[in-house]
Design a protein around this nucleic acid. Structure first.
Length: 134
RNA sequence: CCAGUCGGCCGGAUGGCCGCCGCCUUCGGGCGGAGGAAAGUCCGGGCUCCACGGAGAUACGGCGCCGGAUAACGUCCGGCGGGGGCGACCCCAGGGAAAGCGCCACAGAAAGCAAACCGCCUGCGCCCUCGGGCGCGGGCAAGGGUGAAAGGGUGCGGUAAGAGCGCACCGCGCGGGCGGCAACGUCAGCGGCAUGGCAAGCCCCGCCGGGAGCAAAACCGAAUAGGGGCGACACGAUCUGCGCUCGCGCAGGUCAUACCCGUCUCCGGGUCGUCGCCCGGGUUGGUUGCUAGAGGCGGUCGGCAACGACCGUCCCAGAGGAAUGGCCAUCACGUCCGGCUUCGGUCGGGCCUUACAGAACCCGGCUUACAGGCCGACUGGCGUU
């Protein structure tokens, strides 16, 4: 739908429901210096071809100051918007759980970390919830 | 110039590219978008719902010098009293201790009612080395010592030694005059001193006080389960009455059936099928509440001031798993390193440089956090004229 013909990135779909976050937390996870990435399949079945959805978690426990929590959330969101989200696979939910370093890490490095984490092969076969045979 | 006191203010700026939220739109776009504390949630209100007949009393909680300001306050302003500082100025839980109860550690002889450990003075007796000592009795509280505090303080007189015993000053108390709205101040008089402290132990007095909070609350309203109503279909046997197209229909009654519960029989209690529509209910969700207000700015007037009155002008965030961001450039500011220096500076480079901190219904305060910087008034020194 890029009307202007520019490389317009569609706004990534945001996760809002608690149950979506819980579902993603049951999936696989990978670690980076600024965050922990949780990946899970979408809760509803009919969504194999839907674009990926993203959620952000910044807990009061890891970042006590509200101002710093806002800064981290905006940096992560902006990095997704500027292209990190393109590495994500459709039909999946991604949740970034921020760590303290997310506020100090240079923005370019933050973006590359996020792209790398999203592009990594999802090791969902090794997930704890073992699917029934076949 | 140095040291200091008080009050107020700012707390990065401009531009570019890419975004986010709201409003407007002629669909091109335009406009607006965190703070002085938005924080802690400690007081006071508005607003909403709940409870409540009025008034008083009691209990509980809060407040507490006086006057004023205010919608209100535990806030603010102006005073008073006490304490600190050379001073500008700062600090004070600052009602009542002759209403009552209680407490006053340690030390000390004694901690609230007067008393006497060491002492001071003295009468009698005894001893004596003539200085005095010992015993019994009496008069004292000056001095020593303890303590936060020892029944006014200092000085003079007085005395055997002493003592408000007398006097002066200070303090205290009493009633009075004067000043002040008042807290209180002040003046002279009288009283020889009575009433130790703690109310932040209880208490007494005066004033104030329903509860919960925008996740308040109102409205619109999927699905599912359960509830009510209406309609259609389904619905055992038998009796009575009525109708008749003679097999059924309608009305009433009786007995059953199935399931559940009480351990079982007897007995007792409860529930009765399917579909559609409507009503009620109000969960996810949506809308409202939601930002024009005890509002900001400027001025005039009143007031020592807090503040008030009037006039003009402006519209200034409204998110909702929660917008206000990311990157870059230039310039301020700070700091570090190096070069030059006529010590005023100047040039180059670095900091992955912004303090504390992010609206959540809205106001008035308080408290706490804060890199760096600016302005004003005043005080005490030093220097110059």
């Amino acid at each position: 739908m890029a009307s202007g013909g520019q490389k317009k990135i569609p706004p990534p779909l945001r996760l809002k429901k608690r149950k979506d976050f819980l579902a993603a937390a049951r999936g696989s996870r990978s670690h980076a210096s600024a965050f922990v990435l949780q990946v899970g399949p979408r809760a509803d079945e009919a969504a194999e071809n839907h674009p990926p959805r993203f959620g952000l978690t910044i807990t009061k426990k890891t970042v006590p100051s509200a101002a710093r929590r806002n800064r981290i959330r905006r940096r992560l969101r902006e990095a997704l918007r500027q292209g990190a989200a393109l590495s994500a696979a459709p039909g999946r939910d991604y949740v970034f759980v921020a760590r303290e370093n997310a506020i100090a890490l240079p923005f370019a490095r933050l973006m590359s970390e996020m792209s790398a984490a999203l592009a990594a092969p999802v090791r969902e076969r090794r997930a704890k919830v073992r699917p029934p045979s076949t």
